[in-house]
């Protein structure tokens, strides 16, 4: 029985599945690569140029795979986010001198380096942890240098999954977009206050990202008034 075993098997052995999820997670991260990377980059035939992705931070896959890989990607980013504070703390002991210069050598052999090394240790450990999860150095670099600062103030939920209308040709797999949040975000306009709600106490929450709350605010007066009327009628009787 499958009781209390989480996660989809996706029709693969555990090693196949692990490799596939790592690969997919790295692929998503690598779409954030600089366009410079694609200059002078050719397919195996040596002639066809490789184009940068049309949209950065986005991959198209099946809904099930997207949901499985989401956790892996988010865990990597969270680890990277938490390492940022250690990197900042270590900065005070760092040197701006170039490697192998005299100034750098004196720093490297002094107490400052010991301090810097101790302060950097958690950040280095975080990098190694993420590397052990993805096994892709370039992806790890992008996660720590670009994605972690971008999502520093966001407590999780760095990705979104959007379902696509058409199934995949060939195996009719349900397709979805997996992308980093921050682009294509929902724009919310504050709900207009209904005219008859003027006497209702103004406890409407400030502008939020969620569209559901807007609806709730708009509906509140409607729900309240009949109740109030009913109460008034009951008193009359």
């Amino acid at each position: 029985m499958r009781h209390r075993k989480t996660g989809r098997r996706l029709g693969r052995s555990s090693s196949h599945r692990k490799a596939m999820l790592r690969n997919l997670a790295s692929s998503l991260v690598l779409t954030e690569r600089d366009d410079l990377h694609y200059e002078d980059l050719f397919e195996a035939d040596g002639k066809t140029p490789v184009n940068p992705p049309a949209q950065k931070g986005r991959v198209v896959t099946t809904v099930e795979k997207a949901k499985e890989v989401r956790g892996l990607v988010e865990k990597c980013i969270t680890i990277a986010r938490r390492s940022l504070q250690h990197e900042r703390l270590a900065e005070q002991y760092a040197t701006s001198a170039e490697r192998q210069t005299e100034e750098w050598k004196s720093w490297r052999n002094g107490d400052q380096w010991q301090e810097w090394n101790a302060a950097m240790a958690p950040a280095v450990a975080a990098r190694r942890r993420v590397f052990s999860m993805l096994r892709d150095k370039e992806a790890v670099a992008i996660i720590f240098d670009e994605l972690a600062p971008r999502f520093e103030d966001r407590p999780g939920g760095y990705t979104r999954i959007l379902k696509l209308a058409h199934p995949r040709l060939g195996d009719a797999g349900k397709q979805a977009i997996l992308e980093f949040v921050g682009i294509h975000d929902r724009v919310t306009t504050e709900a207009q206050k209904p005219a008859f709600a003027a006497d209702v106490e103004d406890d409407a929450p400030a502008e939020t990202e969620s569209g559901e709350e807007e609806v709730a605010v708009a509906e509140e007066p409607v729900a309240e008034e009949p109740a109030a009327e009913a109460a008034a009628e009951e008193k009359k009787d």
């Binding site: 959007l162 696509l164 977009i177 294509h184 724009v187």
Partner: peptide
């Protein structure tokens, strides 16, 4: 609950401009 394949519209914004449709 799906992105519109014609105009790329989903929940109040365009998420998928029509050109890069699958």
């Amino acid at each position: 609950h799906v992105v519109c394949p014609t105009c790329g519209y989903y929940m109040g914004r365009i998420v998928n401009p029509p050109k890069d449709e699958e």
